[in-house]
Amino acid sequence: MELFDSLILLLDSTVRLTVPLLLACLAGLYSERAGIFDIGLEGKMLAGAFGAAVVAALTGSAWLGLFAGIGVSVAMALVHGVASITFRGNQIISGVAINFLAAGLTTLLGQTWFRQGGRTPQLNGDARFNGFDFPFADQLAEVPVVGSIYSELLSGHNVLVYAAFFAVPITYFVLFRTRFGLRLRASGENPKAVDTAGVNVNMMRFKAVLITGILCGIAGAYLSTGMSSGFVKDMTAGRGFIALAALIFAKWMPVPALYACLLFGFLSALGNFMQGAELPIIGEVPVQLVQALPYILTVVLLAGFIGKAVGPKAGGIPYVKER
């Protein structure tokens, strides 16, 4: 029973750690499916986390914070769009710039405004997204197995957690069951065909980049106002890149993206869990190995040793209309 309880705790922590990965991963999915590489997920998430924490601290409302986080992240996404769509710049370089810009500006402005070493003030009460319980969660908690799954694992998270998981079927529907989704995917596979059909490729790509900004903003807001209570310097801690790895792992598909993010979320929960713990047969497994596993798996997958990950064909190439 004790083992089962710690398993539930581990899975509960997996769910919490999966959410930012999942939101960022779906964000990257829209952009890359439309043909715009985005290694700036990390920066947009960080900027979103900062914006959300600042506004939540000033207004005391987590919802206003969320909108601010989305706004800041979308602004960053538009910079990426202007650089890589309008000016046909290198999308990788633009992404690198956005990551640095977010890392620098958040700490600089945070220090200027709050003078707490880049932190924002501690958020309490309504300034955070607090978890809410499902009906009868308390009563059912005593029921063996099902009870703890229901009241610990499923219930008690905040609204952004459920929103993130709900975003998976929505993304699937939008990308694979609507005209908008078909055009978006075509812009990343064969933009010329989209253009021939009379659809503006660059406008499609801008829309995709915009959605990326919105989702990264929600991911950031979750980090600073949901998972923790305030913004801390560099709080994304490489999650944007793990999300990118998950995207490749999922071969740019929404439902596999959920599985990849759950796997990577589980690995980071396991990493926290195993800090210094001894395993029966293997002995002590280095935490660093568990932490590096998502990156190692992605390298192995990309190299085609386990399956083959091939991205959208027109990814990274600016579209130039023929004259």
């Binding site: 046909r88 710049g89 370089i93 810009l101 890392a103 700490t107």
Partner: peptide
């Protein structure tokens, strides 16, 4: 002005001499 100001300048230099070169 904290150390991170350098990061901001660095980011802007990368953005304008790299991605927004056009």
């Amino acid at each position: 002005v904290t150390r991170e100001m350098i990061l901001v300048i660095q980011a802007l230099v990368i953005l304008f001499t790299g991605a927004m070169e056009g």
